[in-house]
Amino acid sequence: MYQHAKLRAFENQLKALFNEVDHQLEDRWGNLYSVHPNRPRRGETADPEMDGLFEVAADFTPGIGSEMGRGYIISLRVATLDRLAPEQYEMFMKETAEIVKSLLPRYFPERSLQVVRDGNRFKIIGDFSLGFA
């Protein structure tokens, strides 16, 4: 499947940003809960998204039915069997959104991107233009 070269570069940069978010969350909260028994411990894989307590990623949505339109949903999973209170998960989501917001200018200085609340999720919206190949 063909993928626009600039889209591939954008998503690679976005992946690097989310790897940094994962590291910050793991550093701060990685010992708060036990990691799911079927999940590798932090640092055991080459991809921070695939190990440790947190799985943080960006999932594109065309924004159908959303007041905010298209963008990248900030997806957060806490990989544990421990009981996680809804308030604790909400706190993790807010902190994740704040970290993403603080890192966007460093990873994408040439773009106007922002983090907004869209229903019960956070989303990155703004300039996703790719120009010409």
Results as ranks from 00 to 15, higher is better:
94 K>Y: 04
118 D>F: 01
33 Y>G: 07
65 G>P: 04
21 V>Y: 01
58 A>I: 11
23 H>F: 15
25 L>K: 06
70 R>G: 03
104 L>H: 01
18 F>C: 08
51 D>V: 08
35 V>T: 15
68 M>I: 11
87 E>D: 14
107 Y>E: 09
76 L>Y: 05
117 R>D: 03
109 P>M: 06
35 V>H: 00
133 A>Q: 07
3 Q>R: 12
92 F>R: 01
39 R>K: 15
3 Q>E: 12
99 I>A: 00
56 V>M: 03
131 G>H: 10
100 V>I: 12
14 L>D: 05
29 W>T: 03
101 K>M: 06
83 R>T: 13
7 L>V: 07
128 F>D: 07
98 E>F: 00
29 W>S: 05
8 R>E: 14
41 R>F: 05
26 E>H: 05
25 L>E: 09
104 L>V: 09
119 G>N: 07
47 D>F: 04
56 V>Y: 00
126 G>I: 01
73 I>T: 09
121 R>D: 05
23 H>Y: 15
68 M>K: 07
27 D>H: 13
69 G>P: 01
94 K>F: 08
75 S>L: 03
38 N>D: 15
30 G>Y: 11
32 L>W: 10
30 G>D: 14
8 R>D: 11
96 T>V: 06
70 R>P: 02
54 F>D: 03
50 M>Y: 10
102 S>M: 06
2 Y>C: 01
80 T>A: 13
75 S>H: 07
87 E>I: 11
121 R>I: 11
70 R>V: 00
49 E>L: 11
132 F>T: 12
127 D>N: 14
107 Y>F: 15
86 P>H: 06
49 E>G: 08
64 I>V: 13
33 Y>F: 15
